[in-house]
Design a protein around this nucleic acid. Structure first.
Lengths: 215, 215
DNA sequence: TAGATTGTTAATCGATTAACAATC
DNA sequence: TAGATTGTTAATCGATTAACAATC
């Protein structure tokens, strides 16, 4: 009940919160003042009880008959995820995927600002990709320390992933968003988030094989 | 026990299977003949009991003391995921992300071959991206039917996602890999796999906020 | 008041973890 | 034989689903 206390949520809940947030922001843009968990559930095709439990964990309080005041529930979710203030991030590896992520405008709405991009390829260093000059990766750890960068986005080839991850840790980076297939070894206090396309594809492939839809 | 019977696996298991597969292929390339679940577990930082259960579901049989014969276990996982034969896919939306996915060589190892790319932008139609000429999206449904394409990779902007998804369904596509933030409405027999970067980021952000590492 | 929605408590389900017998 | 590993059975944990009282 203390104001700054932070409940911990399960991974399934955390993964659903951004979906609610996106919908609620849209409803807010449309000028609506209240949103009920029931409506959110219907719109997203999620069980209403799940929505209620998820929203409850953010600490938001709804009103029977009306639902949640939209600006309040949006703030509650943002606070809970740490998205009320943007966190600075470095991106290392400006290949196709890295460039695509640099070009994605939506991250700021999710509390992430990629403030600089790095590569080791001399042909890429010095070029400008989506408004950011690509710097030499050797400068990365020092700059990370200087700028107190918290998150590293890792879009290099698998063979150098561990080396770059080490450099990120050296630079004081606390969370690594790993888009490579490499299994990384980092100190226990560093948070790893793996983005595994193969895993998603496996779920799709297996379901396709079973021939069962989204029921 | 019938030869073509297919057990159904939970999502967590399905997401881990590609990790095992990648490691086992590498061990195979290194000339190893046997791999124990224990070694796989150690290498990937996963509980050995989980690995044993996951491998068991593919139908593979190991030998005490030795482990699994590598070529057999690789085949078992591939069969289970439907990755022993590649499935043809169409990609629609050749923006930054679409181009990045077209450039990714690894999909064939995961049973996916993107055989054609489509867009609606006249400036992009006709250009060649990573060896594939971009076609007009109006041709997509007809070609999908003709070529019996099973999977559609959706990398368009959110505002046209539903329309393109409808066209994919019209073309007989059975599984849609949705890289847009849109919530899609498709017939029950069509399988949706959503790739939600915001969800991954939410998990990372929340953990960062709690200050707890990967323990 | 009547009715829809919240928030909580209980029941069910599935995944993870633990324990151990079987096997080579 | 001894010992490592498989495969199975049981226990625990957490998430989902169900039921219902409280509230505006």
């Amino acid at each position: 009940m203390s104001p700054m206390e932070h409940k911990t949520a399960g991974v399934p809940t955390l993964k659903r919160l951004p979906l609610y947030l996106r919908l609620l922001r849209r409803m807010n843009d449309e000028g609506q003042k209240y949103a009920s968990g029931a409506v959110v559930a219907r719109e997203l095709g999620i069980d209403p009880i799940v929505v209620r439990k998820d929203l409850a964990i953010t600490g938001a309080v709804g009103r029977p008959r009306l639902g949640f005041q939209i600006d309040e529930i949006i703030s509650a979710i943002e606070e809970f995820l740490g998205w009320s203030n943007t966190t600075d991030a470095f991106l290392v590896g400006v290949g196709h995927l890295g460039a695509a992520l640099l070009g994605y405008q939506g991250f700021e709405q999710h509390g992430l600002r990629i403030v600089a991009a790095f590569d080791s390829n001399p042909d890429i260093i010095g070029t400008t990709v989506h408004g950011r000059t690509v710097l030499d990766v050797v400068q990365m750890p020092e700059l990370a320390r200087l700028m107190h960068v918290q998150i590293g986005v890792l879009t290099v080839t698998a063979s150098v992933a561990q080396k770059v991850a080490n450099a990120m840790v050296e630079g004081g980076i606390r969370g690594i968003w790993n888009f490579t297939p490499a299994t990384l070894d980092v100190p226990k206090n560093v948070i790893l988030q793996r983005e595994e396309l193969a895993s998603s594809l496996a779920v799709l492939s297996h379901r396709l094989l079973l021939g069962r839809g989204s029921d």
